[in-house]
């Protein structure tokens, strides 16, 4: 898979050369003009992205070096003042911890769990049932978070919630907590909801990746008498490694940008115990009127995302399997 990617970039250039030699246009000036003219294909994306994505993000970094009063419109330059304040903000650290917990748990369930589940589904013989299970598990990802949030509120409700009912029925009644109301469990209750909503999405993507493994490899393994579990470990896993890497990248960056889930479920409470960086940005910027400090926290999100990207590079740099 990887090999195909690197080859393709080279191939793109190849198209250009072939065109130039066989095309009717030969003059250098016309060729240069034509090259620049091809810019029209990417112009829309470049304009839209620079204008509506890059410019606002740069603007955000500028804001993070200021302190502003939105009501009077007064803005003063404070340099790195917001960043030094950030180091002493306990909630930033607990939010960072919550984001990390989000990332780790999501990787376990939405990458490794989804991989195993996809392996099981793809080992089914009937095409109908394969499609059925994939689609069914995907459904929660297609549901609005407003809906999921209200649904899980009722599931987690003390006393009458379905989770408490199940726990009492299975003899775990002593472990019951006010899930969303306890400072110790709130964030994990939200993470659990997030797994419910997200695992089907990654299962589907893994299923797609497993389908791409040539069937002959499995056939050969079967003939050699290799059992299903070993087939997963020694064939499916290494051959879907690119997808795994991609999913880990997407899942971790997603975990550092998480916002809606926490906002809908607890708003960061109780007592800021379930704040994540995204909601703390919002809390500081929109609720406490401190956009400069909010923007500084946003840059922590940015750095975390970039570090994940760098780590992913390191991961993909190591040997890869191709076929």
């Amino acid at each position: 898979m990887k090999a195909a990617g690197s080859r393709a970039i080279g191939k793109g250039a190849g198209v250009g050369r072939t065109d130039a030699s066989t095309g009717r246009l030969r003059g250098r000036a016309r060729e240069a003009f034509r090259q620049c003219f091809s810019f029209r294909w990417v112009a829309a994306a470049v304009i839209v992205l620079v204008w509506f994505v890059y410019f606002p993000v740069v603007d955000n970094f500028i804001i993070s070096t200021t302190r502003s009063d939105i009501y009077t419109g007064d803005v003063s330059y404070v340099g790195l003042g917001n960043y030094s304040r950030l180091l002493h903000d306990k909630v930033v650290w607990s939010a960072l911890w919550n984001n990390c917990a989000y990332a780790v748990i999501s990787v376990i369930f939405q990458v490794f769990g989804a991989f195993i589940l996809a392996g099981i589904i793809e080992s089914l013989r009937s095409d109908f049932w394969r499609r059925f299970w994939r689609a069914l598990y995907f459904v929660p990802s297609a549901i609005s978070l407003t809906v999921t949030g209200l649904l899980f509120y009722f599931i987690y409700q003390p006393q009458i919630g379905i989770l408490d009912a199940v726990m009492r029925a299975t003899g775990l009644g002593a472990l019951i907590q006010p899930w969303l109301g306890s400072e110790h469990t709130a964030i994990y209750a939200i993470i659990a909801m997030s797994q419910w909503q997200g695992f089907g999405y990654s299962t589907l993507l893994f299923a797609v990746a497993i389908q791409k493994i040539p069937g002959e490899i499995f056939d050969a393994a079967r003939i050699d008498g290799i059992g299903p579990i070993r087939r997963i470990i020694s064939i499916t896993w290494p051959l879907t490694r690119e997808m795994t890497g991609l999913m880990i990248l997407v899942t971790i960056t997603g975990a550092f940008q998480v916002f809606n889930e926490v906002m809908v479920m607890t708003g960061g409470g109780p007592n800021n115990a379930s704040q994540v960086l995204g909601t703390w940005v919002y809390q500081q910027g929109f609720i406490q009127d401190d956009f400069g400090y909010g923007a500084a926290i946003a840059s922590v999100v940015f750095v975390a995302t970039m570090l994940t990207g760098a780590a992913h590079l390191w991961y993909t740099k190591r040997g890869r399997v191709s076929w």
Partner: peptide
């Protein structure tokens, strides 16, 4: 109902 209140809307 005590501390449960933080988990109730």
């Amino acid at each position: 109902d005590g501390g449960n209140m933080n988990g109730v809307s």
